[in-house]
């Protein structure tokens, strides 16, 4: 295994192209190496780990976290944060499921969470950009409001009897689970958009150096609102995967979902100070967590120590990134 790690580290020095990749995507490479290392070790212990079924569980079962982390990464790259996204997904899932059960067309039940997510988050963005309230304050407040509101309105009744056409997360296209396709396509589109469009690149400028961004004529406030709106759309897309996985929707907020999503973004290399990071990294970090969670069960780590080991692995990834940055500078 050490050999494998070393070879991944060593390969880039053989060519300029690879070196550029190593410099530019350093954190992504670390996360990627960690995923590969885990897969190798664990599949030696138990080959069933890399069975098609388990890969589906790891990738498709957690795709909604990766999708939500794309939007979160954009928010964080712009220098903000959103702790209300878990509550938002809970609310959107309930809306989507209720519409589907009430007999609205399926496409409408899928579209609604995206639109409502955009609307709610635009409002958050306006408070952040124009009322100049720090995003953590707005979203802490929004988290309480959404969470309390959800319980008030639904009373906690579960949504059952969902129409079978609604279950997009259970579908397969060309024998590939739909959530996996969602995750890959959205990640690639978002990555290209952030890299190759002026708007996308301006996010880095806003997060990295506000004064400079202002000086170059970037409409910071408007862009901030739009980033939150896009984040809301991704939360809506994540909701579609989240709500259509099972035949029931639990109309409560999944515990600690926001923390999982934020962790995926920042471990994937999105700097919390804004200005750097990619959505490829956050998607890979989401996959890393899913892999760790599954791997530890496969290698029989005592369930009591599971969370400690996960914490240790997260810390190790963070420290490895810092070590890489030092080595670079």
């Amino acid at each position: 295994m050490t050999v494998n790690q070393a070879s991944i580290g060593a390969t880039p020095s053989r060519s300029g192209f690879l070196r550029r990749i190593a410099v530019e995507y350093g954190q992504e490479l670390i996360v990627f190496s960690a995923i590969i290392a885990l897969f190798i070790v664990v599949s030696i212990v138990n080959p069933r780990f890399i069975s098609a079924n388990n890969l589906t569980t790891i990738f498709a079962g957690n795709a909604y976290i990766a999708v939500a982390a794309i939007g979160m990464s954009m928010v964080i790259i712009t220098g903000h944060i959103d702790v209300s996204v878990g509550a938002l997904i809970g609310v959107l899932a309930t809306i989507s499921g209720s519409l589907a059960v009430a007999g609205y067309p399926i496409w409408f039940a899928w579209l609604a969470p995206v639109l409502v997510g955009m609307a709610i988050n635009s409002f958050i963005g306006i408070l952040v950009a124009y009322a100049r309230i720090p995003s953590i304050v707005v979203t802490l407040g929004a988290m309480s409001i959404l969470r309390g509101g959800l319980i008030s309105v639904t009373g906690g009744d579960w949504i059952t009897d969902l129409p079978s056409g609604f279950m997009i997360a259970q579908k397969r296209f060309f024998d590939i689970p739909a959530p996996l396709i969602f995750m890959v396509v959205l990640t690639v589109l978002a990555a290209l958009w952030m890299r190759h469009t002026p708007f996308g690149r301006s996010l880095y400028a806003i997060g990295g150096n506000k004064e400079a961004a202002l000086a170059t004529g970037i409409p910071i406030a408007r862009r901030t609102v739009m980033v939150f709106a896009i984040h809301g759309a991704f939360a809506g897309l994540a909701t579609i995967l989240f709500a259509t996985q099972l035949q029931v929707i639990q109309s409560t907020v999944p515990p600690n979902l926001e923390l999982t999503i934020i962790t995926a973004s920042v471990i994937g290399g999105v700097s919390i100070l804004g200005g750097t990071g990619t959505v490829i990294g956050s998607t890979m970090a989401a996959i890393l967590f899913a892999t760790i969670g599954s791997a530890l069960i496969f290698v029989n780590v005592s369930a009591y120590w599971l969370r400690a080991v996960i914490g240790l692995l997260i810390l190790a990834t963070v420290l490895a990134d810092m070590w890489r940055r030092r080595a670079k500078s």
């Binding site: 923390l259 962790t263 471990i267 120590w305 599971l306 969370r307 400690a308 080991v309 996960i310 914490g311 240790l312 997260i314 810390l315 963070v318």
Partner: peptide
């Protein structure tokens, strides 16, 4: 990271 570690 330590939030996860210490709770674990």
């Amino acid at each position: 990271a330590t939030l996860a570690l210490y709770r674990g």
